[in-house]
Write a protein that binds this DNA or RNA. Structure first.
Lengths: 232, 232
DNA sequence: GACATTAGTGACGAAGTGTTACTAATTCGC
DNA sequence: GCGAATTAGTAACACTTCGTCACTAATGTC
């Protein structure tokens, strides 16, 4: 049995080098894309996630917002933590500890900051092992939370068609969804409301535009589901 | 400051004081309980979560295991990260950054380490604001993951009755479940298998003992559910 | 033996889900 | 102009899942 000092030896909190690493995601033409920044010459990889140290007194989400702005030129629409990492996988700045966050943003109009570029998630360049792990964790977390958090709506402009929305869900889950089922479930959820605008994309029938307008629903109160213990 | 000759100054990763804070949970008589340790005299609160700094080269889960052992006298059955915290809420060791983890353990036989004690989650003593936030986050995370991860089974001994299991789910979700529905869903999940032992608790019909023995199921592949956007 | 107590199951109606097949409104090619 | 192609949107059916009720089963207590 280990012994605790029975006395006021106030233990000192050790210091560690700490990085905040952000996976900025946005929908591209036909895939989800992550924003990477070019690394200074001399590093092992040419690209990395946007990252920085935590400034003193700064919260994690504040730092992630600042880091996103410095690479994207705009603040993200939503931030979520995806986990912390302190194992031996190498960080581009050799940080002892990384806090990983995922930032979501709809397609951005303005130009990116110099040195930043979008890469499809399925075609990322080489990243440091820790950054690679953070990206993988981010995609897992996004997939897990997509139906408990309005993630998909943060990847779209304020008004969107239901086909747009379904497309985002399909990107996030990387599988096809059935149109009728998707709309019926959406209807039942009271998450969107129709606007009186319609959009014509060229061919095909014009689509009605909707906006995200969640109404408080009475609690679901479902039983346990013993869902996907399938650790994918 | 580290410099690379002939090149732009490589930004230095700042140091921060870092703590690993563990919420150790175990089922007590009729509630979930968290393990707290007595703080050295002089602090603002008399109790805190078990915590420590990260030793150099140590992974977060390794640290959490070590910290749990030092308060519980045994390793936890399961660990999960619940989030990191760097806001202004006070930590008992004034750490800049906390990484919070939740540790699950079935009722432990041996004695606790001196200075450690179980408290029902619903009747915790005063904790530092950051520790309070970590506990709250831990209960939320546990509730969210209870049907995606075999959390409940880690709070039980290797063999258990289905009523035991249902009781754990009710503790974790803090609501009553219906017996028939619970068993039907469990049946469909192929997560447990019966042993040939039975347990008689005194009154009532004896119950068959089961063990956790998940069989790989074919993927569920359900549509999107637009579930609980009800941020509790 | 009557009763209380806990374990375990069958079955019914309601709600939810996957799918097919349809109608609607537009552009394109001719 | 007109049919084919294309995209949007919906009705309806079969089937599954879920909440609930009502029951049977096996033990201890009096």
């Amino acid at each position: 049995m280990r012994e605790r000092p029975s006395h006021p030896v106030k233990s000192v909190v050790r210091k560690a080098t700490l990085a905040v690493d952000v996976v900025v995601l946005s929908p591209q033409v036909d895939s989800l894309a992550a924003l990477l920044v070019r690394t200074p010459p001399g590093g092992r990889e040419r690209w990395s996630l946007p990252w920085d140290s935590l400034l003193s007194g700064e919260g994690l989400e504040d730092a992630a917002t600042r880091i996103t702005e410095s690479a994207l030129g705009a603040a993200p629409a939503l931030l979520e933590q995806v986990g912390s990492f302190a194992d031996t996988r190498r960080h581009p700045g050799d940080a002892d500890v990384s806090v990983g966050l995922v930032a979501l943003t709809p397609p951005v109009e303005g130009a990116l900051v110099a040195g930043a570029e979008w890469f499809a998630l399925s075609a990322l360049p080489a990243l440091s092992p820790r950054h690679r792990a953070i990206v993988d964790r981010a995609t897992t977390v996004v997939r897990q939370r997509v139906d408990q958090s309005p993630l998909a709506f943060r990847l779209l402009p304020p008004s969107f068609t239901l086909s747009d929305l379904q497309g985002i869900y399909e990107l996030l889950l990387s599988r096809r969804l059935h149109k009728a089922s998707f709309r019926r479930a959406l209807q039942a959820s009271y998450l969107v409301e129709p606007t009186d605008e319609w959009r014509s994309e060229g061919r095909g029938r014009p689509a009605q535009l909707f906006r995200y307008a969640p109404r408080r629903r009475r609690g679901a109160r479902r039983g346990v589901r013993f869902d996907l213990f399938t650790e994918g």
